[in-house]
Amino acid sequence: MTDRPEASLVRRPGRTLSAEDGLTPLLASYHLRTEAEKGEAVAEVDALPDRYRAEIADPATAFADDMVLLALSGSAAVGCVVVTAPDAGRSEIKRLWTDPVFRGRGVATTLLDAALEQAAESGAHTVRLSVWRWRTGAIALYGRLGFTVTESWDEREQLVCMERAV
């Protein structure tokens, strides 16, 4: 018997998101943690850059054309990832986040497997992502799932860009 609760997965077209989905607190945690890791710690969502506050305040608009995958433990959202609609045969994975309490339980791998499946079903032939250089655990996970480092498409320093075929 395990004390680890199972997580189920749900897909939500971005435009259908609502406050009840539980995405907002996950996005807030993701962005607050990222800013802290960049050395720009802020205590509250209101102090985040405008583009991040907009995602948190209205994910249905921010991700209107995308698919949002949520990992649930019971009715509580414990992880998320966003898969963009294909553009020229390429989708992007963004905002992968697992509640720290649920890390080490395969939630991120489950989300990524589903994201790759979603991209393939949407007609993408390639999936790409960017990850901060210091997130070595995430980079290792992406590598295990077949992603390889590629030339950067993003001008921000410290980002590692990766891609793989689906």
Rank of each mutant, 00 (worst) to 15 (best):
A76E: 15
P86I: 09
M67N: 03
W153Q: 11
D3C: 13
F147K: 03
D154Q: 12
Y52I: 00
D113Y: 05
V42Q: 10
S152Y: 06
A43L: 11
A57I: 03
R12Q: 08
A119E: 08
T98N: 03
R90L: 14
V131W: 09
D46T: 14
P25R: 03
S122P: 01
R133P: 04
W134T: 13
A77P: 02
T110L: 12
P5E: 11
E117R: 14
S130C: 13
A19P: 10
V160L: 00
A88P: 01
T98K: 03
D3R: 08
S152D: 06
T126A: 10
K38W: 13
E155H: 15
G123S: 04
G104Y: 03
R128D: 13
T84Y: 05
P25L: 01
L26K: 03
C161D: 11
L116G: 08
Q118A: 14
T136A: 14
C161T: 11
D21N: 10
T126I: 13
A41E: 14
T16Y: 06
P59C: 05
S29M: 15
L72N: 04
G74E: 08
P100G: 04
H125A: 12
V166R: 06
A85C: 10
T98W: 04
E163W: 07
D99M: 06
V83P: 05
G89R: 07
R105N: 09
C80A: 15
A57T: 09
A140S: 13
D99N: 10
T110S: 15
W132T: 13
A76P: 01
E40H: 12
R51G: 00
E92K: 05
R15H: 14
P13N: 05
V149D: 13
F147A: 05
S152M: 02
R11S: 09
H31P: 05
E163I: 00
V83W: 00
S130K: 06
G89M: 04
E20W: 09
L116E: 12
V42H: 08
W134A: 13
S29E: 14
G146F: 01
T61D: 06
D65W: 08
R133Q: 14
T16E: 14
A120V: 02
A108V: 02
L70F: 05
D21I: 05
I93N: 01
S73C: 12
V42C: 13
L145P: 02
V131N: 04
W153M: 01
C80Y: 00
T150H: 03
V127L: 07
D58Q: 12
A57C: 03
V45P: 11
S75G: 12
R15Y: 08
T61Y: 00
S75W: 08
Y52A: 11
V127G: 00
R12H: 15
E20C: 09
S130Q: 14
P59N: 10
M67G: 01
I139P: 01
R12T: 08
E157C: 06
G22Y: 08
V10C: 09
T98A: 07
M162A: 09
L141K: 10
E6H: 13
G22E: 00
I56D: 03
A115M: 05
A19M: 04
V45W: 04
P5I: 02
R133C: 09
R90K: 11
L17N: 07
T136P: 03
A43I: 01
G22T: 07
A124M: 09
A76Y: 05
